[in-house]
Design a protein around this nucleic acid. Structure first.
Lengths: 248, 248
DNA sequence: AGTAGAAGTTAGGCATACCGAAACCATACT
DNA sequence: AGTATGGTTTCGGTATGCCTAACTTCTACT
């Protein structure tokens, strides 16, 4: 009798550059499904266009992306799976730094960016266990499970909300530490109840009320700020609705 | 009035290879003061001799080592300082992994090896604080302070002890995880009281008694094991005597 | 002192990942 | 349809850090 081994889980050693490319491609698609272009990739990675062309060719050779010359870049299932594991690493690390080492949420991004390439799977697993298998990070971003499944909260960019809409802040972009410090100061945090009051004329600030009852406060938010905040309608809360699973 | 700025603390970005070379050079000298040769360096780093020649030239250009062709390699004060900061990182990480993430002492070395190049100074500082500024790691190796000062325990290799000597185990080489698991199994750990009973003839095993009173147990230790264990005479214990400070 | 073999260095190459400049393609506008 | 414009790729080149193979220097033994 012949026993068939499960297809060897090819542990292709991926360089940290490859990991970064794949992660950025994924991140671009996470909240709306448009493939990313070379130039956008180059901008986000801070490299020259030519470097992207070259690297994309390598990624394609490794089966991580689909790409036709002069068109946008898309992750394959394999690429998606690698990306999800990097996102998982990043977000678990951010959560860990905040909860266990007293980092503030504006400090964690860069540190996690470096660590995610260095830690072992064992480290990730121990961290995950110690944190109690959290489902979202300090900025509200969902943490993919070890099997690659993600639960996306049903959220909309605050900047796209019509006056009258209300809900809770479920996600805050972590790309600008400045902004995070500002929000901290104003005590605008994750899960804060929020309601869009109106919009100042001529593309002006978005007026929102944070909190309820007597503790409510009104803010004029610039486009930059309201772009960075995501709101879920009351009730659907901590993260439900869409569950998307990616095969490995 | 002119204010003189302190000489800018040149934050030369050192690559992880440079860090590894410097660390290995330092480690070789830590317990006895002989400079390391190219071939020894190559062996410990797992690279070809030619790679070492090349890299040593670069290290010399950067002022991290002194080196004359065909002779041994020595750290400069600057190199020593970099090495100490890497050793500090490594040992703090090992301690952290054991105490906070439940690693066993045979698992930590490789993980720390990777992390030490990735974590920030901030991370190190937070870890150090959380651990209560420990002075030695899980294997008994002294952890250099942030200012580069190290307190070396007055210890001798067990393999070089004469029968009749007694003391406590203060350091256990962490280079062989196998060996660490063996010692764990035999419940031979850090700070265990120990006494050399004798030596089997013809370069045979070293016979030692671990523990005292009724709990004492005798072991035959091979050269390999007794080489890896360091013993301090009773009394001088956890780490005192030699304090060596290196200027930054 | 002479020389063999070990130890160390130099020379030429490879892989990764980046760059700027030049060539190329696609689209959108007249 | 014809072309300008901008996005994309290709082409040489750079820097690191590693390799093997060939060569040089040192050392220790006869």
């Amino acid at each position: 009798m012949v026993t068939v081994k499960p297809a060897a889980v090819k542990p292709t050693p991926t360089s940290s550059s490859v990991e970064d490319y794949v992660k950025v491609i994924y991140a671009f698609t996470e909240w709306q499904d448009k493939p990313i272009t070379s130039t956008q990739l180059a901008t986000r990675l801070g490299v020259a266009n030519s470097s992207v062309s070259e690297m994309v060719r390598k990624l394609k050779d490794q089966g991580l992306v689909d790409h036709q010359p002069y068109s946008a870049v898309r992750l394959t299932a394999e690429g998606q799976s690698l990306a999800l594991s990097m996102v998982r690493r990043h977000r678990l690390l951010e959560t860990y730094l905040v909860q266990e080492l007293g980092y503030s949420w504006d400090e964690v991004h860069d540190e996690a960016e470096l660590l995610e390439h260095a830690v072992s799977d064992t480290f990730i697993e121990r961290m995950d266990a110690k944190l109690g298998r959290p489902s979202r990070d300090p900025h509200g971003d969902p943490i993919p499970a070890a099997d690659g499944s993600v639960t996306m909260p049903a959220a909309h960019r605050m900047s796209q909300l019509d006056p009258g809409h209300s809900g809770r802040i479920t996600r805050i972009s972590d790309h600008d530490p400045e902004l995070l410090r500002y929000l901290d100061q104003q005590r605008i945090g994750l899960d804060a109840p929020i309601r869009v009051q109106g919009r100042k004329p001529f593309g002006g600030a978005l007026v929102v009320r944070v909190g309820t009852g007597p503790a409510a406060r009104d803010f004029d938010l610039t486009e930059e700020v309201s772009e960075a905040l995501w709101v879920s309608p009351e009730g659907t809360h901590p993260g439900c609705t869409l569950t998307r699973t990616t095969l490995t």
